[in-house]
Every structure is written in structure tokens, then in C-alpha cells.
Write a protein that binds this DNA or RNA. Structure first.
Lengths: 218, 218
DNA sequence: ATAAATCAAGACAGATTGGTCTTCTTCTTG
DNA sequence: CAAGAAGAAGACCAATCTGTCTTGATTTAT
């Protein structure tokens, strides 16, 4: 409700996962434990009791902060998404250079994500895969998350003066999703580079100029 | 054990889902019901009782044919994968023309799949997303499934005399995964065409020739 | 016809689920 | 110090979970 003070010392962490954030309040400890278990063992397969045991809190405390398990899942997805986007777009903001360089850097940041030993795929992809048919809440959360990405991609494409920015954003989104799934299944982070090459190919074909072959770097 | 007679009149169905196949034996009815429920509502979320109720069989019958729920999940994944591949590669075999045409037709067949109202994504992607960390059986099943696809893609790339067939197969696999996930989330089958354009772009760049713009067709 | 196998129906067991409630302790705030 | 909020520990409940077992009907094979 009125926990608006949390964002003060929360924003400068460098992790992509909410579960890795330092948790002080009981609410954060629950969220952190739930996030870790949900993302690593599945939402339905994770029981309330294991969350409590990992968080070291009491059952009543959980139900004081969250109405139900479903409510907790929503909160975890939201927090996980915000933490990830903050990390992801933060990394991209560090890139200096033209929009094309920043667009292609998306896949370098992805590779960094994939290389983390704790990488478990995208929580939203996993959640939609698990609940799927007819679960509106989860689907809307995933939609929102992807909307953030699409908007960012579109903004970069516009800066490049690409004719059809929507098509380019859709293309790059497909590449991002594909790289995530391929890396998750194979545990091979280099699928990010495969996706990057496809992105270079696409940008070169819609932009005319040859696509930033990242000479020397890395 | 000795149910080797089933494949006789099973192979000429035109559906991509095992759950839609006509089921006569009790075993098939259970498999069909389980497949439908697992894929639409999740593996962990589907109880044995709802499978039995949908199959119209008794509990003892299920445990006569399968050692456990886990065993049933494995069997469903295997059957679902085989049915899908039989449908998918069957469709592609109908395509006449050079290997490049066949490779690009992959995305037309995908769009057909995505357009089915009962489309729920790839069972293997969903299963890995749900079980994820440390579930070897599921992961190996998904690996095998993807291996079939990669081998097929590689064969077509070799026929095209593409220099690095492995890289091309990996690239197309990323596009397939990305299209599946994007279509599943958005319920928009046209992501198959987006992926197809990226594939054309890639093939054109590694093959020299301009990439089969499918003039007139569709 | 008789023996064997298959199956439906469902009772049953033991564990676990999500969720509520009570009791006692600890901490914070006026 | 006193009042009140927050949390820990855990009993408790009804429902559901996977899995076993029994019984009786139906079918198949000898």
C-alpha cells in the first residue's frame, strides 16, 4: 500500500534478478525467496511453505502482505520485470555511439545475461508457458514487459531513420525471444551472437549502410 | 510393452497435435486427455484425476500403463513431439523446388500452426520453462526434438552449398523459437512472416543469390 | 465353458496444498 | 514506561495431490 520508500536505496544495484537484491524488510525477504523459487522450480510447483522456509518468515506475515499466492506471483513478476528492465536498459544507456550501435549492443547485454550461472530464462516467457491458456493476469504482465522492450527498440529505430520502425522492432523482438529460449535450452550463451548477426543483417538491409561489424571490440 | 500395432493406421493424420488423434485403446485415450490438459493448463497444475475424468478411464488403468505421473509426462512429450514432427516435416516434404524454397517454407508451415485456434506454443519450450532447473528427463526430450529440427535445417543448407551450415541452422533455429514464443504471447500468427523475412535476409547474405521473394504466391 | 486378462468405479491412505487463526515475543513510537 | 504494531511459531482446516488396492463387470483366449 504505502511502501513508497523502498525505491530510495534500491535503484543502483547491478543485478538483473530481483531475487539477488539485498532484502531487509520481511516483505522483501518473502518476495526474494518467492522470486528465486518460482523462477527456478516453477510457479505451481513451488509451495507456500518452501517460500516461508527460505524466507525465514511466518505464514501470517506472508498473508499480511499478500492476499493469496496468486497475488504474490503477480507481485514477483512485476518486481522481477522492473529489476530486469532497470538493469538491461541501464546497461544499454552506458553505450555511447549511434542508435545502431546501441541496438546491436542489445545482444551483447543479452549474452552477459545468458552467461550468468543463475540464468533461468525470462520469467515472463516461463510464466506464460506454464499458465498459458486463459490466465489474463500473467498474460497482461508479459504484454506490458514486452511493450517496454518494443517501445525502446522503436525509439532507436526512429533515431536511425528506418522507414518501417514497427517492422524492425518486431524483428528484433523475435530475435531477442529466440535467443533467450535457445540459450535457456542449450545453456549456450553464444546464441546471443547468432541473434546479433541476424540483427546486423536486418539493419543493413533496411538501412542501406553496412551494419557496424564491431571491429576490434571484444 | 507389445503395442507395436498402433503405428499402422496412425501415420496419415494431418494434425500437429497428438491430443487430436482418434483414440481407441484405453492407453491412447489417457495419453490424449493428458496431452490436452498438460499442454493447455500446465504439467504440474494438471492432476491425475482430471486426466482420468477427461479420458473416461479408471485410475487403475492409468497405473497399469504408466509407472507414475512423471512417466506419463515423458510419454506424452515423446508422442506429442513425434506427431508434430511427422506433421511438420510432412508438410515441408510436399514443397517442391530448391532447398532454399523449402527452408523458407518452414515459416509458412509455422504460420499455419500458429493460426490454429488450439495453438498453445511448443510443448517442449513450455515444459522446459515449467520444470527448468535440473530436470534431466524433460531437458533431454527437448534436446532430442530440437536436434531433429537442426539436422533437417542443416541438410537443406548443405544442399544449398552454404559454407557454414551449422551457423545457418543455428540462425534459423533461433528464428523458429522466436516466432513460436512471439506468436504464443501475442496470439498473432504473422510473426511467422517476420521471422521469414529475417531468414530470407540471412540466406541472401550467406548464399549470394537474392532470396526467393515468393512472388505472386499468397 | 472356463480361465485369464482388462477395465470401470471408487474407497482408501499418507502427504501436501493454500489459507486462517491463536499465542507469545520483539520492536518501535509516543 | 506504556501502547500498539509486526512478526515468529505453529496448530489447525478443508481440499487436493499421487498412488494403492478391492470389487465386480466385461471381454478374450484356450
Amino acid at each position: 500500500m504505502d511502501d513508497g520508500l523502498n525505491d530510495i536505496c534500491l535503484r543502483d544495484t547491478s543485478g538483473w534478478s530481483f531475487a539477488a537484491l539485498p532484502a531487509t524488510s520481511a516483505r522483501d525477504k518473502i518476495m526474494s525467496a518467492a522470486s528465486h523459487l518460482f523462477c527456478n522450480h516453477g510457479f505451481a510447483a513451488t509451495g507456500i511453505d518452501s517460500i516461508l522456509s527460505r524466507a525465514g518468515t511466518a505464514k501470517a506475515t506472508l498473508y499480511n502482505h499478500f492476499r493469496s499466492k496468486e497475488d504474490l506471483i503477480s507481485a514477483v513478476l512485476e518486481a522481477e520485470g522492473e529489476t530486469w528492465r532497470s538493469w538491461f536498459f541501464g546497461r544499454l544507456a552506458e553505450i555511447d555511439g549511434p542508435a545502431q550501435t546501441r541496438l546491436l549492443a542489445v545482444f551483447d547485454v543479452l549474452e552477459e545475461w545468458f552467461s550468468d550461472p543463475g540464468f533461468y530464462g525470462c520469467p515472463f516467457i516461463n510464466a506464460v508457458a506454464e499458465f498459458d491458456t486463459g490466465n489474463d493476469a500473467v498474460r497482461r504482465a508479459a504484454d506490458l514487459h514486452k511493450e517496454y522492450l518494443l517501445t525502446w527498440l522503436k525509439a532507436q529505430a526512429m533515431e536511425m531513420k528506418i522507414p518501417d520502425v514497427t517492422e524492425t522492432a518486431r524483428s528484433l523482438a523475435v530475435l531477442v525471444d529466440g535467443a533467450i529460449v535457445a540459450a535457456q535450452h542449450s545453456r549456450d550463451p553464444s546464441f546471443a551472437r547468432t541473434a546479433r548477426r541476424l540483427a546486423e543483417c536486418h539493419l543493413a538491409s533496411v538501412h542501406g549502410k553496412t551494419g557496424d561489424s564491431r571491429d576490434g571490440q571484444r
